[in-house]
Design a protein around this nucleic acid. Structure first.
Lengths: 123, 123, 123, 123
DNA sequence: GTGGTCTAGACCACC
DNA sequence: GTGGTCTAGACCACA
């Protein structure tokens, strides 16, 4: 896995897992890879993965069963999706619109680009 | 000036100035406030401002005239705008579209929100 | 380490490291001393070393691995050497030749001096 | 006149004048432009020219006749030339030779380049 | 007055 | 342990 330098690795792992839940790579009630497995997979220090899992556990997205592993919580999908939708509508879209004004860009041009990309993108 | 905790102050100052150039608070060829003035204005240590100005100089947005101060470079407006437009079209829009797919959101709903906000926003 | 008063320390550190790469004291892919270690070694404030490392990173000569340290980039040797050769041929030699004309010095006399020194110099 | 950012302007003016003496633009015993004239010519603050002239006076290259102007001292040409020759042989050439070793460059290649340039250069 | 550099010391996030 | 950032305060060269 490739990491972006500008964000901390443990947060990128958090995103990787929540995104995995959104696209059904990990399903509610199922086990996710152990800290060690994950660390090997993505070539990262196990401490870092531990931190990500702690963060996810705190947000009630995964749960630890001692001695067995981490499992995706019930309702995790819904919570993640709601969070992201809120983030999108309350922060990202407003920021985008403000940028358009600043750059003297018309809304229509950008919408056109979005439409094109929206259809192109397979996944 | 209020700073956002999640980004470093010196980068927020960089943005403050580039945005200032975009909206004509600072014009090409004109002098921007001295390091000390700016530091007083926004209540920050002069070293921090120095760092921001160094960054801006490296990006050829401002230029130093020894013993006199910093001046907005010719073509700065254009360069800043081009950079931001490119960032928007190459990174932000694609990321947004991908998020829509991930969240199973239709394009139309988001466009509606954007239109509403676009008209509301004063400047 | 002894520093020359006429150039800033952080740039002398930059040179110390690039020269170190040229003469294989630091090798590509290997870790260089941490900011604190280097600061202790050469008896300089860590902030100053930080600044040098930032400069080197920007020039893609070293790379940071978060929480671990700085490593010499692949291709660093080549880039440094190419830069210095270009500097030599495009700037230093022409300046030298122009000085010779200005001083009414013959080329041969200088070449003689260079040859003598070239053989004397051990490394 | 164009100035190099990396050196202080007043020193570049000093060089401009000493070089002018070497190539007979200014001759011993003759008057050089007044501080004001020079400042106008090269578009620089008069204070800066004053500083350059002070430096030159200290090195006994020009002399002030109060109310009249600055004159090139007797023997100035010789002193400047001697200084530059010494600088060349004691510092520049050794530094150049050391660079060659560091870059694994043969002496012959560089000499070839120098010869070519030496003949080409008209002045 | 201007910016440039350096030190000392602190705090923080991260691995 | 690692680097990144910020502050405070100082000194310097320069215009």
């Amino acid at each position: 896995m490739e990491f972006n330098d500008s964000r901390s690795i443990y947060l990128q792992i958090v995103d990787y897992i929540t995104t995995g839940i959104l696209c059904n790579r990990y399903r509610e009630g199922e086990r996710i890879p152990s800290v060690r497995e994950m660390a090997m997979d993505i070539e990262v220090n196990p401490n870092t993965v531990t931190r990500s899992y702690a963060e996810l556990q705190e947000r009630n997205i995964i749960q630890n069963q001692r001695g067995i592993g981490y499992f995706v919580s019930e309702g995790a999908y819904r919570r993640i999706r709601d969070d992201r939708v809120r983030e999108l509508l309350e922060n990202e879209v407003p920021r985008l619109v403000q940028t358009l004004h600043l750059l003297n860009l018309g809304l229509d041009e950008v919408i056109e680009v979005m439409k094109t990309r929206y259809q192109e993108t397979p996944q």
